[in-house]
Each structure stands twice: as C-alpha cells, then as structure tokens.
Nucleic acid binder design. Structure first.
Length: 136
DNA sequence: GTTGTGACATCGC
DNA sequence: CGCGATGCCACAA
C-alpha cells in the first residue's frame, strides 16, 4: 500500500491527528469521521469533500502508527475495528481497557464513544475551531 | 496524463 | 439491522 493520500501539509495533519488521538481517554473510542470533524478543513477544500475523504486521511495519518499512540481507540463510524494489520490485537487492547464488544464485534458508540473537547488545544495550535460540521 | 486505490461515510434496498 | 453501491481527493505508480 502506497503512502496513502496526504494532506497539504502531511506532517502537520498527521501530528494534529495524533494529538487528538492522544486526547482519547482509556476505555473510550472515537471514529475517523469524528477526528476529521475536529480538524478544520484545509482552505480551498469543500466541506463536503473533506467529509468524504477527511476520515481517510485520518486513517492515512494512522499508518505511521507511533507506538506511543493509542491507535486502538480509533475505529470507524460503525463501531467496528477496521481491517488492518493487528485488528485482533486492537480488540484485545480495547477489551483490556473495559470496552465491550457485542456479538457482532461492534462497540456501542453511544456508550463508549468519546465526544472530546479539543477546541482548547486546537486554538493553542492556532487553528480555527471546526466550522459547521453539523452532521447534515 | 491516466488509472488504481485507500485504517471511511452515507444513502438505499 | 445488514449488505451493497457510490462519492470524495491534498496521491503514487
């Protein structure tokens, strides 16, 4: 698999994603889409397009997968672990944190989903708070 | 320049 | 609720 698509500033985007992932407390999970919604879309890009692909770029940022990153707490919007190397390990880690999986191997986002409030440090990074990402 | 693709999201059936 | 089809792009080969 290639380097996957990267944002205008791959490094900054990845770092930002990682920072957000780091905010996720143990026993909680968040989704790619939610992370993407926390990051302001690049100027000149349609919010629509960003919504469609932002989540993928988040995944692309996770490809680097630093060891100190709780990558296991990042799942897709369906509450499932995405197909990726180490999926079994991810489930193990999450269960160890107290996250429960139902029979389908899915997580109840209403129960374990992490809303997060990254606006503080987002401003600290000199970034604008995510505009209208009001899920439609 | 063209083609394939990707740790996704959403809508429709 | 589940599975299939579609869309979107700042890429890489």
């Amino acid at each position: 698999m290639p380097r996957f698509t990267s944002p205008h500033d791959p490094t900054a985007f990845k770092l930002l994603v990682w920072e957000i992932v780091r905010q996720v407390p143990a026993g909680r999970v968040t989704t790619y889409g939610r992370i993407a919604a926390m990051i302001p879309p690049p100027a000149g890009m349609n919010a629509k397009s960003y919504l469609a692909f932002g989540s993928r770029w988040v995944g692309g940022a996770m490809v680097a997968c630093p060891d100190d990153l709780p990558w296991q707490r990042v799942i897709n919007a369906q509450g499932m672990i995405s197909s990726r190397p180490g999926a079994g390990k991810q489930r193990e880690l999450l269960e160890n944190e107290g996250v429960e999986f139902n029979d389908r191997g899915r997580i109840d986002l209403k129960e374990y989903g992490w809303a997060g409030s990254p606006e503080k440090w987002l401003k600290a990074h000199g970034l604008l708070p995510p505009p209208a990402f009001s899920k439609k």
